[in-house]
């Protein structure tokens, strides 16, 4: 394992310290590094709190700031945060409007956020994101994984909260955005969890993992590497088939951390053409590393249907470490 670290035990703490120092103008690191919160809170606004395992940066702490999250609770690498973190965050950022938890659909995350909601004094609602179409759902299973679409939910709901939307409506909006968002990922190489020290999985010289999860979980199948165009075709077909509806959409090409921007834009080019074939109009675009898996090579594609309301919230000003426009 080769990483720019001092020791696996201190990666998270040192990284959070650097993050907080680099963005001291917009955010504050909570005590014992339990959470990152906005520097300036808006009294009475419903608070948006997310969090999850670390290693997906800029998700979630990179989306704390005006127009997005009020706080993010970083767990250990790929491990959900613990309830005390969310409770501590709630205590600081719930200014009377209650709080919305935005939680990716993993049992660890759900249970820890659930316990926090049960133990906390605040009024809490939760939006669960589950946009990954790679894993076929089955009625008795736990459903889909929450992946890159999560940041779209955070952006749209964040803008709505900023505009004064009350908690109950934010929950409805978040569920709606999630329901209209689908993603799928592909990996060309594994990631290595610092504390584990060895790659999470191993791919052959010419293999890719189609449908990979954002923790390097295996996906649908391990197959020979294909040209980018074919990869985009398969992924968009899976997304469109699952999404059903057509129309204006945001197309997010999300790098997993080890793929050059040059390839991500090439994938955008291919994915846009495929999306248009399926009847989508790519009304908004985002290309870059937003929901990563450490240094994994590969990317995910996300289509999120937009209407006037959600497009407006997407376009609204945002000022976070990981996403910024309009201010």
């Amino acid at each position: 394992m080769k990483k720019l670290i001092n020791s696996p035990e201190t990666v998270l703490a040192e990284s959070l310290d650097g993050f907080a120092a680099a963005h001291a103008d917009i955010l504050v690191l909570g005590e014992e590094r339990k959470f990152v919160r906005r520097k300036t809170l808006k009294p009475g606004k419903a608070a948006l709190i997310s969090g999850g395992g670390s290693g997906h940066e800029p998700l979630h702490a990179g989306f704390v700031g005006f127009g997005m999250l009020d706080a993010a609770c970083p767990g250990q690498v790929f491990t959900s945060p613990t309830p005390d973190q969310m409770i501590a965050a709630l205590a600081e950022v719930d200014t009377g409007g209650g709080a919305l938890f935005i939680v990716k659909n993993y049992e660890g995350d759900r249970m820890n956020f659930d316990m926090a909601a049960e133990l906390a004094g605040s009024e809490v609602l939760t939006v669960i994101t589950d946009d990954d179409v790679a894993v076929e759902t089955s009625t008795y299973s736990i459903g889909r994984r929450g992946v890159a679409g999560t940041m779209i939910v955070e952006k749209v709901v964040g803008a709505a909260a900023e505009a004064g939307m009350p908690l109950a409506d934010l929950k409805v909006l978040g569920d709606r955005v999630n329901a209209r968002t689908r993603s799928m990922g592909v990996a060309l190489s594994s990631c290595t969890v610092p504390a584990a020290g060895t790659p999470t999985f191993t791919l052959g010289e010419n293999e890719m993992e189609m449908g990979v999860g954002i923790h390097g979980e295996p996906g649908r199948r391990r197959v020979a590497l294909e040209p980018a165009g074919q990869i985009a075709e398969e992924m968009i077909a899976a997304i469109a088939g699952d999404l059903g509806a057509r129309g204006d959409a945001l197309l997010l090409v999300n790098g997993f951390g080890g793929t050059p921007l040059m390839e991500l834009y090439l994938m955008f080019n291919a994915a846009k053409a495929e999306a248009e074939k399926h009847g989508y109009r790519v009304a908004r675009a985002l290309v870059g590393n937003y929901v990563t898996s450490l240094e994994m090579a590969g990317c995910s594609l996300t289509l999120s249907l937009l209407d006037d309301e959600t497009a407006g919230f997407w376009d609204a000003p945002v000022h976070t470490a990981g996403l910024r426009w309009g201010m």
Partner: peptide
């Protein structure tokens, strides 16, 4: 355990 383990196993 709830406060330190994290993941699914912590709450369980």
């Amino acid at each position: 355990l709830v406060m330190k383990v994290g993941g699914a196993s912590g709450p369980l």
